[in-house]
Amino acid sequence: MKVITLKVNGHCFVKAVCPSMTLLEFLREELHLTGTKRGCDVGDCGCCTVLLDGKPILSCLLPVIEAEGCEVVTIEGISECRLHPVQEAMVEQGAIQCGFCTPAMVLNGVHLLGTHPRPTVDQVKECVSGTLCRCTGYTKIETAFLEAAKKMEHGDNP
């Protein structure tokens, strides 16, 4: 066991962890943040995406010990009290069906709009390309991201 310090959704945690524990297991089983989903668990599906120091990564492939000193943002931490514009747009556009990929998709969208406030369709496609959605066919998710960009441009910020 090793003691590590890391920040999750703005809160600092000091925990003793086993080196073979992944960040995904840490989030779900130690912190009970079950919004981050466990899909394939080998890096194929992208459902376990979280933001590590602001960039989307796969939490199933990262030993939590490697996240020592880093800042993690999960779906629970992207906004307080209300929905993030990306989430709102996804609800409005019907971009959520079974919902299993949704937390990952939203985090991809949040990162995209943070780095590219006016994304092109190609940038949106590239952004969702690492996360599998077997329900929506991606079109509505892409529309939702573009709509969210418009919302945020008009001052609707989380």
């Binding site: 992208g46 989307p56 990564i57 796969l58 492939l61 690492g130 996360t131």
Partner: peptide
């Protein structure tokens, strides 16, 4: 190569 999430690591 691979996906955006993987390229970040």
């Amino acid at each position: 190569i691979a996906s955006p999430q993987i390229r970040n690591r």
